[in-house]
Design a binder for these strands. Structure first.
Lengths: 344, 344
DNA sequence: GCAGATTGTAAATATTTATTCTACACCGCT
DNA sequence: AGCGGTGTAGAATAAATATTTACAATCTGC
């Protein structure tokens, strides 16, 4: 009772303040409470994400650059945020907000979404998303558990939260993401019907959300601890790896690198990834430039959210030989433009 | 140049403030400008609706009442806002925000939307909408011009704005909405191919947005001035009218009232209205109770956004004889529930 | 080229909002 | 009943934000 009542008061205050634009003192007078209480209720509403402020970038500021990247690499959409700085943490936040906004109004029908919640940026995105009404039925994890238990917990929570936001059922992959050996992987899977089911669901995915990893080990992931070792990373680097998408290592041109590591990963396969109807990646920052180019050049994704500097890098580093769309003309291209809505 | 630059600065400041949660003084220091400028840029961003704060009502507070209205009148969805007060202006704002939020995540495919921008609440809704990516192609007005030129201008601007927000083409009905006589109407239409085209497009509408009018003349609309006269209103009241939807007058049970006024209106026909795939209405307030009941009882709409008091009235006033859905059991019913997303 | 309008600026000030701090109510426990 | 612990309230106060002011720079139309 009291909680419901408190909640309603909070919402009422939030509405009076934000949508009716009343001052806190006036609200306090009207509701017969103190101004400090109003202030506190508002703060409460804020971090219960009852109120949310969104900063809508009106039309695409970097439209031209976006189109050039799109046409060079044959991507269907590129979204460039002009980040407030090139600091990694701040950049991640900007990318996350942009991706969230983008996701929030997907125009196409989505039944199954695969999500890589172990990407830091994607977790951040999930944190800042608003609930959305979709017809999405399932949210499936793309990879098994990686890293220390704390991270696994975050990841599971993110997946669960994402599912709640979209009104879908979460499908977890609660299995070590990197097995110690091929045999170990078989063993793990054979005894885990849940994991088998999850992996099967990755066969038909409408939208997959991925991060893009560099060729170094993320500091959050202790090497060896439920993850590849430094040695294993060094090995694939020797084979030419410049980065990875869902732990599939890629060379500079985006070709997948065959190595025994492929057999150790429990998660979405190359084929499953490529067969997803839409494949969105979010990544940026100088550290990941080469990895991102590999991911787009290899056609592993079709929509990219990144920063201006990375986009610039993608344009400047000569388009690689293989499956790039058509000619090199970076002109108007085939890409559709999106809704603009600036006002007088 | 300067404008673009100013715009980008504004956005940058808005992002630093809202998404990166920096203090104004820190932003000022970082960007080498004064705190007051930061403050003003933020205000600017606010009323350019670059930033928008939304108050998301978590789960439906009035879920039970909603379901009862739904099942009694056979509506597919009812959304109740618990308005901050019963003052008409404040109520309209609440209704508008709710409708906007609702519209923003329509899950179904929409190609053509018909909009009644001469409803005050709907205009307000359009003002507070955010741009949305849809596949909507056309936004068609449901009625011709009503009232004084200033209102006509507002209406046109709203329609245009709504189209811009949805990325659709606006289709105007720039013709008097109420003709002086049947002959006059014929004459007006025969010489106006644009209007003819617009009226034709109303044949196949995916979503129509309407207000609900009481049986009194709205103060914004001077009687006679491009609108019905007091005498005409009195006449339909004598015939039993309690309200209207798109200028189609209805009796207490929601049956349409045949009168010569039907022949004077240039706008969506009864048949066109009923044939629209989805029909959403927004209205509330004691003044309109009877009109709203007529609209829902007559099956003129399938989704209603209203206030708690009105919903209560709808439940209490005995369900009318005709085409109400099934039995009288106001229990759980057939209605689906929507996404909830409350957190710990 | 210059008066008048417009816009942008920082500093000072006023207003609004957040954060103490203290008091008190409400548990669960002995 | 009496005793800490916990949480929430309002009053006072600190901090943050908005507005006013006065002046400088940049356009605008003659």
């Amino acid at each position: 009772m009291t909680d419901i009542d408190g909640q309603r008061l909070m919402i009422k205050v939030a509405r009076l303040y934000h949508t009716h634009e009343m001052r806190q003192t006036d609200i306090a007078k009207r509701l017969q409470i103190s101004q400090s209480r109003v202030s506190r209720l508002l703060a409460q509403a804020e971090d219960a994400s009852i109120v949310r402020t969104v900063v809508a970038v009106p039309q695409h500021v970097h439209a031209e650059l976006e189109e050039r990247v799109e046409s060079i690499y044959g991507l269907s959409e590129v979204h460039i945020v002009d980040a407030v700085s090139d600091d990694d943490a701040e950049l991640a936040k900007d990318l996350a907000y942009t991706m969230a906004a983008l996701l929030h109004d997907v125009a196409f029908e989505v039944r199954t979404i695969a999500v890589t919640s172990w990407s830091k940026t994607l977790r951040l995105m999930i944190d800042v998303m608003l609930p959305m009404r979709t017809r999405c039925k399932h949210v499936v994890e793309t990879l098994g558990d990686l890293g220390p238990p704390a991270l696994q917990h975050d990841t599971a929570r993110s997946t669960q939260h994402f599912a709640a936001l979209t009104g879908a059922q979460p499908v977890f992959l609660r299995t070590p993401g990197v097995a110690a050996s091929r045999e170990m992987k078989e063993l793990l899977l054979s005894s885990d019907p849940h994991a088998q089911k999850a992996l099967e669901m990755l066969d038909s995915v409408d939208l997959v959300l991925v991060g893009i990893g560099a060729d170094k080990i993320d500091p959050d992931l202790r090497p060896g601890d439920n993850f590849f070792t430094h040695e294993q990373f060094a090995h694939v680097r020797e084979l030419g790896a410049v980065g990875e998408v869902c732990l599939h290592f890629l060379d500079a041109d985006g070709n997948p690198i065959d190595s025994e590591l492929e057999d150790l990963v429990v998660g979405i396969t190359r084929e499953q990834l490529k067969s997803a109807r839409h494949r969105w990646a979010v990544a940026g920052g100088a550290r990941k430039h080469r990895a991102i180019r590999a991911a787009v050049a290899g056609g592993w994704i079709d929509t990219l959210v990144t920063d201006a500097a990375t986009a610039q890098f993608l344009v400047e580093s000569a388009p690689p030989a293989p499956q790039a769309a058509q000619g090199t003309t970076p002109a108007k291209g085939n890409a559709r433009r999106r809704t603009a809505a600036s006002k007088a």
